Simulated scan of single mutants.
Amino acid sequence: MCGAWLVCFLLTIFEALPSQPDQYGYTARTDVNLDAVTSAPWFHVPYPGQWGMPTVSVSSVLGMIAGVLASTMESIGDYYACARLSGAPPPPTHAINRGIAVEGIGCILAALWGSGNGTTSYSQNIAALGITKVGSRLVLQTAGLLMIILGLFGKFGAVFITIPDPVIGGMFLVMFGMIAAVGISNLQYVDLNSSRNLLILGFSTFSGLVLPTWFHSNPGIIDTGVKELDQVIVVLFTTHMFIGGFFGFVLDNTIPGTEKERGIKSWRKKVTEDGSTMMTDRSCYDIPFCTNCLQRFKFFQYLPFLPSYKAPELRT
């Protein structure tokens, strides 16, 4: 990405790219958003409520609930993809619950700071694990700390706005291609010679691609008379992953099929093989410095986001 960015910068300096917005190749210039760099302050400390007090309405809450539901489904898939790319065992229940909870806390903080977007897992970042082969939590924690520090310098953040759209597009081709391939690789446990599975796979995939596009092409097509309900339906049905996952879930659980045919048997075998090692490896999902302390108190086994959590059927 940096190499392509540099090439675009040099082409812009030597006026090799068109200077008119309506000409092909103009978006590859690095000075398209240069005003954002010049107008950005050198140093700025963001604080809660800097854009005014947050407002709450029924329609916005219902719309966000629909968005959070779709985002949660995407995040769960991202967690499994992240574990697969980093060589970790499948995430246990408490790790998934904790991840969703932290995303919720991040959304609350984002709303207070007025960042204009929620906090969730990003598939392209997970794809970066497969490209860079770096899955260390220490590396990611250090990167997060650097982002917080550099976020105080307005000029630094504004520089990234100058990255041309073609460079971003090329980066997305690699990253989204990687995450799509990881998702498809999970089908190795499923019998793809089964017409049942091919029907479910084809229908859910095609629906996830077509329906959101149709809704985007026909704005206002949903009119139930209740504005809040319209927003919920539109948010859900314009989310590709929600549509594909919803139809796949419904069809897989309604169309008869054996456990071997559905891939459940192979998945269980993969998860439970070498059980003692697998349980040891699951320590990567523990909370640093706290797990031993949490296990001393029986109360914590009832909290579903802690490593000491036990399912009701496993409690004694």
Rank of each mutant, 00 (worst) to 15 (best):
L34A: 13
M278C: 11
K133Q: 09
K269Q: 15
G130S: 12
N292H: 03
T30F: 01
T142L: 13
P48R: 09
Y309K: 03
K270P: 00
I168F: 09
T72N: 12
V37Q: 04
S71D: 11
K133M: 03
F43M: 13
A127L: 05
L140M: 10
R196M: 05
D165E: 04
V190L: 07
A101S: 02
P92S: 14
L152E: 03
G169E: 06
P166T: 10
R315F: 08
L10C: 04
V159N: 04
V226F: 08
V250A: 08
G244T: 03
A128S: 15
Q50I: 14
I13Y: 08
I13W: 14
V226I: 14
L11S: 03
T27S: 13
I179K: 03
A311N: 12
K133Y: 01
L10K: 02
I222R: 08
T277I: 09
G52D: 09
P54T: 09
Y26T: 09
Q301G: 07
S266P: 02
S57K: 03
L6Q: 02
F172I: 10
Y302Q: 03
G244E: 05
V234L: 07
C107Y: 03
I243P: 02
Y79V: 14
M279H: 15
Q231A: 08
G25E: 14
M175G: 02
L145S: 06
R296V: 05
T238Q: 04
I222L: 09
L140S: 12
G25W: 10
H240L: 05
F9L: 13
E261A: 10
Q20E: 13
S86R: 09
S59P: 07
A128T: 12
T291C: 06
P54E: 07
W267I: 11
N218W: 02
S194L: 10
F247M: 11
I168P: 00
N186S: 11
G275L: 14
V37C: 07
N186E: 13
N117K: 06
R262T: 13
S60H: 06
T239F: 03
L294F: 12
W5K: 00
H216N: 07
R268Y: 08
T224V: 04
